[in-house]
């Protein structure tokens, strides 16, 4: 007889081993055995993806493994989330709402997608507006969903200027939304220059920074 702890441990390891099929099988087992889905998400899937994120941060693994692991994690989430009772859903209320996108003129999306996935896995409600998005698209979506945070990604030197425009637009409208910038050609100094609330160098920093900004609010 396999214990609940063992199943959750297997779930965590399945994510950490980028094994989507096993994640789905174990998520279904969680449902069959009546294990608390919230616990399965938090102690299985989230722990697994965070372990993968740490390994990515120390270069033990690379983007290809991280993406497959993230996909496996989300496959598990998609099975377990509908199982949560309304009471549990209340407990799982989002840490915060994030609107994320790549700025106008820039079609890079890998980093942005991964940050979105990691934020989602860590309990944020994420609205990914996609790539090549205008300043207005960021503002409109943030207003529509009542975003706590906006994440604006730019991977080229030519498009990072859009980040400045986004910050300016939010400030001019008097919106309190925190703005995080990211991408290969930006850093803390650029964040300061454009007046953003923070810069995230990698996935882990993006999650930590987002949580810090929510706590500060």
């Amino acid at each position: 007889m396999v214990s609940e702890e063992e199943i959750l441990d297997e779930l965590k390891n399945a994510v950490a081993n980028y094994d989507e099929e096993s994640v789905k099988r174990l998520a279904n087992k969680v449902i069959e055995k009546g294990i608390d889905p919230l616990r399965a998400i938090q102690d299985g899937l989230v722990k697994g993806i965070n372990k993968v994120g740490e390994k990515f941060g120390t270069k033990e693994i690379f983007l290809s493994e991280l993406m497959v692991a993230a996909e496996a994690c989300l496959a598990g989430m998609n099975l377990l989330k509908p199982q949560l009772t309304s009471l549990r859903r209340t407990h799982l209320k989002p840490v915060g709402k994030v609107v994320i996108g790549t700025v106008y003129g820039d079609i890079h999306f890998i980093g942005k997608n991964l940050v979105a996935t990691m934020l989602e896995a860590n309990g944020f409600e994420v609205y990914d507006i996609g790539e090549d998005q205008s300043v207005e698209a960021f503002v409109n979506k943030a207003e529509e969903v009542g975003a706590d945070i906006v994440g604006a990604s730019a991977l080229t030197t030519t498009t990072r200027l859009e980040q400045r425009k986004i910050v300016k637009a939010f400030r001019e409208k008097g919106l309190k939304t925190k703005i995080i910038i990211g991408g290969a050609v930006v850093d803390d100094a650029w964040a300061e220059t454009v007046g953003a609330d923070g810069y995230a160098k990698n996935l882990q920093e993006a999650v930590i920074l987002a949580k810090q900004l929510i706590d500060q609010a």
Partner: peptide, 12 residues
């Protein structure tokens, strides 16, 4: 092209 550079449009 806009001042900030060429507007990339290839589909994903």
């Amino acid at each position: 092209p806009p001042p900030e550079g060429i507007h990339a449009t290839y589909p994903n």
